[in-house]
Design a protein around this nucleic acid. Sequence first.
DNA 1: GGAGCAATGGCAGGTTGCTGCCAGGCGTTG
DNA 2: CAACGCCTGGCAGCAACCTGCCATTGCTCC
Lengths: 218, 218
Amino acid sequence: MTSEQVITVHGERELAARTVPLFTGVTSEFICAATDLDTWSHRDTRPRMRPALAEDGLVVRKLYTPAAPAEEEQRDHLLTLVGMGARVRICATGLPNETIIIDRRVMILAGAATPGDREFTITTSPTLINGVYALFEATWEAATELTAYLHRDPPQVDAEGRRILRALGDGLTDEVAARRLGLSLRTYRRRVAELMRLLGSESRFQAGVHAGEFGLIP
Amino acid sequence: MTSEQVITVHGERELAARTVPLFTGVTSEFICAATDLDTWSHRDTRPRMRPALAEDGLVVRKLYTPAAPAEEEQRDHLLTLVGMGARVRICATGLPNETIIIDRRVMILAGAATPGDREFTITTSPTLINGVYALFEATWEAATELTAYLHRDPPQVDAEGRRILRALGDGLTDEVAARRLGLSLRTYRRRVAELMRLLGSESRFQAGVHAGEFGLIP
DNA sequence: GGAGCAATGGCAGGTTGCTGCCAGGCGTTG
DNA sequence: CAACGCCTGGCAGCAACCTGCCATTGCTCC
């Protein structure tokens, strides 16, 4: 039996001191998963990433929630990254605390956002890293490419719309669904027509496919 | 700055010695992600799980790849677990090395299956665990319930069926689609009805959702 | 208050989708 | 050949869905 160290640092200051050499020394792969861009790694790596990305052989993968491309500034930055060769995907389901894996040798996990300093852990344990790496792969596979994600019209569906989509997804007839949602048949169908226009669908089947693709049928 | 230990053990023997008390001491949540059931945790926990599951308040979540329910024996075992109150989901995309999180306080990650002994790491670092936990959540959300997964008839859709699904997904009316596929309207609708029965759908919208879920609309 | 506006819901008449029934074609089997 | 089963496609009738029109309601703004 052996034991390995997991270094825990408090606050971004201390973290930066320890990780700057890591970021500049990336050779083969840089992986990052986070909810949005408003994180230390964003602020920290932006100036340093550019030269690294220019080289060949370096894979940069970034995984975010839909919150990231929601704001224009962040979306533009993401597109810039894509233009520089990074691969960016959006994951419809909730995402982890920030996770970074460098060259599959070093991993940094961010703790919960507490009022005081945040905690970060840095580890080099191959077993730990491989485990998290595989988990990341699974999430990555299920996510959609940023470009494809932005290509879709922003499906801004409100709560009622989602209830209607759920009714449709449950296979209810319009009459039953309308009654269940407290709408008149006419209004329900109006809503459905609006949703179909919103989804760019020309038939209910197609609308079902689209709604599924947008993750609106949970 | 503090540092925490990650214990690395070699071989299942040594692991069992360290983890048996953990397994028996589960109080609130037991999470397991793996490719299939042929793992140490399966062999190890089967006898001990039963009483724990009987109690209320204990959540057991298990995440597997489609390989797990492929074999009848394993499928039966999974269904038994479900019957005992565990939640089992199947993740279409690749899955991690075996991961176990107990009460969100202890985490065990399995290393790669090397010819010799396997490595396992045991850690209690909250930051590490929370990070992996959130990653697990994301994968879990994207996965489908075992019962729903088994409920699907094996979506054995032949080439014509897929052409029809594509026509539906393109939003064509039955008349246009039938003409384009060289079928009579009647036969086309027969096919659609068959597909809907196959997909377990009660409306075309629902069929669209299901077809999308099965990846039949590329 | 009254004009304007947006949302609602009833109605009517249309299209589309769904299915039972039956007639015909085609290959297999006795 | 005849009988049988299977698939096809036309027809008819029904159910479901779609939408234009208009009266009503509730709201803001002048």
